[in-house]
Write a protein that binds this DNA or RNA. Structure first.
Lengths: 256, 256
DNA sequence: TCAAAAGTGTTTCCTATACACCCATGA
DNA sequence: TCATGGGTGTATAGGAAACACTTTTGA
């Protein structure tokens, strides 16, 4: 039995050939590693003009009293997507999740002091018009001022926010932040909250219309008590993720 | 003991409070799940005008004879990045890897028929000027015509290629495909091979210069036997990933 | 009729592609 | 001097931000 540099062990195979463990074609390992694997979710929603994340207050050490991302251990028969949907079903009604995508996997051996745990983070988005009932130890927190957070969860939240901000620019993810129908000033408000900077409703309208992301419903909302022209109602044409601005640059040359 | 819907078990806690397992704050699990976790790499290089991926031919079932991605089981003390670097050190000299980033994690319970294995895939890039010595059962294959591949590895390769193509548009990843110094026609060749469509050298030059990605070295290569003006040599200014085109759209308004 | 909010027209800017033309070299 | 490949100048197109102006409503 030969052990070489990087934590890999070669065992002699029946036919005399050396089979590197951890490569493949390998038999069941004699000592399965005791890795834990969990799915976590960065669930974001625009609430009160702020981009908020759903957090969960830890009652026990480690990190007692700190806030953490919802999620939990991966079950045996399910994949990560099913797992995180299941976990969230108890915190946020799954029907409220308009979009869910995988973010990244954290694997620092020290990220959980108790035992080795890998975490795969997901990004979930909840439209602004719903207010899911959440447990008492769970709450929404502005991503602009995160509370003291457990493990590496704060950096995962920032990672999710970065992903959302980038995708608002070249996809139609906006559909997952907005209610089914909305006025342009509402929508520009959601974009402003998510991006952290001003978004002019007039230009947003033209950009999204040109890209075919939104369309007029034909209806409008009556103007408020202080008057003003009634706002037209729009909707997203697709309510699943589409890349609407694929070849921003280095696009293929025109064929004719 | 109460069992509820989604493979979660609540156990009564000392203080009478119910602690959901699989949430956190939990004690060590009584029966650690026997998940395997492996790191895989989609190592890409431009070879002979084609975008190629490094594959490994399986000698044993399952998928005997099919090609698979290099990688292997995660070690106890290392994170996924260190693990894949270690695995690759035996196939491609690590110094040849100009860039490495995490792609995604696959978790379908059926993806490996032997036992439950999660795989985190990485994207690695090798500059076109090196020709790493690889084992005999390992070879480069055009991503345009993949051979019969094991597990879900073919779709992981496509995922890596998609990522590379997208990032060529808004980052400086090109540095990881090109040698330290290159002419513009060489570079446009690399871009053409990676993107799968024509890239005009003249425009590429101006785009990358304006973005500050490349600069002239001041030197040039003598023209070939068939004459022609000698080509200027360029280099990338940064040899680590930079986002050079961040706010393609929906950029923050001008402050003044 | 005035204030307020929504929507349109138009300008300007910037970036990227297309393409004609000029430049430097070898034979 | 001519073919060849590299490089520059310039036209064109398109998208998006900025902003003045118009429209539609309530009081």
């Amino acid at each position: 039995m030969v052990k070489n540099g990087r934590d890999r062990v070669d065992i002699p195979h029946a036919n005399g050939r050396t089979v590197p463990i951890g490569e493949d074609g390998l038999p069941d390992p004699p000592h399965p590693r005791r890795f834990g694997h969990e799915a976590l979710a960065v669930v974001l929603q625009i609430r009160g003009g702020e981009l908020c994340v759903l957090l969960w207050r830890r009652a026990l050490p480690p990190w007692e009293g700190a806030w953490s991302l919802p999620g939990g251990r991966l079950g045996t028969g399910e994949d990560l997507g099913a797992s995180i949907r299941g976990q969230l079903a108890q915190k946020v009604d799954v029907r409220d999740l308009a979009h869910l995508e995988q973010l990244e996997t954290r694997s620092d051996p020290e990220r959980d002091p108790r035992h080795r745990t890998l975490a795969t983070a997901y990004l979930g988005l909840v439209p602004a018009d719903v207010d899911p009932i959440v447990p008492v130890d769970t709450g929404w927190h502005s991503t602009a001022a995160l509370p003291a957070m457990a493990f590496d969860h704060a950096s995962i939240v920032r990672s999710g926010r970065r992903r959302l901000r980038a995708k608002l620019g070249y996809t139609n993810v906006g559909f997952a932040l907005a209610p089914p129908e909305f006025t342009m000033s509402q929508l520009s408000g959601y974009y402003r909250s998510a991006l952290g900077h001003d978004v002019a409703a007039t230009n947003l309208r033209r950009v999204l219309l040109r890209r075919g992301q939104i369309e007029e419903t034909g209806r409008s909302v009556p103007s408020g008590r202080s008057g003003g022209r009634p706002a037209a109602l729009f909707r997203f044409r697709e309510r699943s993720l589409q890349i609407t601005d694929e070849f921003a640059v280095l696009r293929p040359p025109n064929v004719p």
